[in-house]
Design a protein around this nucleic acid. Structure first.
Lengths: 206, 206, 206, 206
DNA sequence: GATGAATGAGGGTTCATTCAT
DNA sequence: TATGAATGAACCCTCATTCAT
């Protein structure tokens, strides 16, 4: 394994290049959604993108970089949405804010059901320096003050753990609901319930 | 994809073979735990098992079969343990029974932290006929009456979904706790809290 | 057995690819001629072709496809030659036409003595959909009207059998003659004699 | 490839060993008939014979030796039968004797249709020292005086070639007839016709 | 920049043969 | 002698990556 950087090789501003990159990223996402990690190979991606492998490698130093980019976009979309939600719900009680987060998360995941889940699998092999993995902390950072609203002084490590658990927990339930046969009714309630219960069990007052 | 059976090729009675099979299975598990799916190849497994590839293929018709066997063992251990727990807690209130299940699940997962998680990933590609995937329903079947204790008449699909969610939810939290830096304190409470909250949100009285 | 198509993967227009394909096909033929089916493996073929295995698989989905292509070329050459001969001898008496066919067949086989024979062996395992196996009927179709020239009404099955026998018979004798030590003298007479005798024995007037 | 002898390791006189050898040979023949060269591997043969691989190697130094034995038996049966036919037809005109030979050959091949053909393929890779390949000359030797009956003095090489051609020619036609859909009617006439025509073309008076 | 042909290490699987029991 | 577990060389095929055009 080469230790090539995981960042994109170029961040082209020109229209054509931009379009190429988009095509590649979209093709990669689609393949991941339809065939899973199995069919995720550079040749297939390039073909589906209507581009040559060479071009793919012009914009991404390797397969890992493509995965990283996919993750980055995924996380970024989540982050920016959550920032909005956080802003809009500022001042509301914690439970209401959580519900708003959950509602957003459901909507977000519903757009590309399998994608996040498969990406998580692929990401496991990636180094932590990756841009994508850096977005997670940002999301956590967003969540932590919400959770800590009523708290006296929970230590940082604990809070990180709790926020991370909340995220994972929500994702698990949402994934399962979107996967199976028509079971999204009441999903929001179930997730919020689980989160509330979790926080209660963790000793966090909300 | 070959339609080769996923069952073991031989179930040898002789001591030597038995030991070989154990060595292979154990090596496979270890590799899965240490390197993840990436390093999981038959040559590496055989080498770590101190055995030739040929021997591996004498007992398992292919890589998939090895994964299946690993899953089967994993699921079987969980199932038999849960059966015991269910028996011992018969008659107790639902919440207490859930707590007992959770406690057992934590102990169980702690033995081989990453294994189940990685197996789940690999299992996704397996056919549903697999013995391993047949154990999941059994676990659900065990869980459903416990959850439905106070219920009037929740329909089957819903109950399957709920039980599955509970399982997934618990696994997620336990996995995360075992993964990260020493955070198992209070884990049981967190999981039980999340389950209770989830069930509440799902409209299941406990 | 994978149901992978037996057709070539790409039919490249660029000169380089074209040359690669030719090199591969030629190497395959040579190996078949020199070592027989035993040495016919993709690595050896690629090596002899001065090409990497990857390239081989870029143009042929598998070993079978390569065999199929070899057969196709072989059969096609025979067919097109025989069509010419048939055209040139139209109107002549049957025996003369047979002799012309035989003369052509000898010349044809002499170019690559062992090839056809070995190919026949390998082809046995191939599905009948193969392009190559579709050429055989075409050759039969060419031969049948020639044989049926003087006939009242021989039924189709019989005629297929007879034409096939003639083909096989000629091939056997020609193969043997080309194989052994300088024994081609009089070959044409022997083959024509055998054919005439066969047809006589089969009740076909010529 | 080891240059191990192709002869059987032991020629056991004891009943049990004898039976084992028979079982192995019969199993090998059956596999060759049903699956062709593809499924012809020592493990499968031993299994079908109800014997361990070890035993197989006790009686045959290798796979080749097994093939050789199969060929030897095949050829021997043909030879001994032909010797009888030759004896019974001594003094008759050549054509009548040929017909008798052909009739016998048809009966013989009909017993195990595919076997001889597949064996021929496998034999190609065998060294000429093999016992089996030594039987062919004996058959030729039997045939040659019959063919040379009316001849002044055809040289040896020519006669070998002619006799060999006759053999091959007969085999080809018989094989094809036994293979296809019920086409054995008139087979004898066709074969004899072809032989007569061949000999005529070869300048051999009969 | 773009292309796509070419590369070859790597991984799954088979099977002839050996040898300890 | 018989057994069958074990061996490992050899083969098929994939796919990330490079580079001449």
């Amino acid at each position: 394994m080469t230790s090539a950087s995981l960042e994109a090789r170029k961040t082209p501003r020109q229209g054509r290049s931009q379009a190429t990159v988009e095509a590649i990223v979209e093709a990669a996402a689609r393949i991941l959604e339809t065939t899973g990690p199995a069919g995720f190979n550079t040749n297939a991606i390039a073909r589906l993108a209507g581009v040559s492998v060479g071009s793919l490698y012009q914009y991404f130093p390797g397969k890992q970089a493509l995965i990283a980019e996919l993750s980055r976009r995924n996380a970024e979309a989540a982050l920016s949405g959550l920032v909005d939600v956080a802003a809009h719900t500022a001042g509301q009680p914690t439970l209401a804010r959580l519900r708003a987060f959950v509602r957003f998360a459901i909507a977000q995941q519903a757009e590309r059901p399998r994608l996040s889940r498969v990406l998580d699998q692929l990401e496991e092999g990636l180094p932590l320096t990756s841009d994508a993995r850096a977005t997670a902390p940002a999301i956590l950072a967003l969540l932590k003050p919400v959770l800590a609203a009523g708290e006296a002084e929970p230590d940082a490590l604990t809070l990180d753990l709790i926020a991370g658990d909340c995220l994972a927990l929500a994702r698990t339930l949402i994934d399962r609901a979107l996967d199976g046969p028509a079971s999204c009714a009441g999903l929001e309630d179930r997730v919020v319930g689980a989160l509330a219960g979790y926080l209660d069990g963790a000793g966090v007052a909300i």
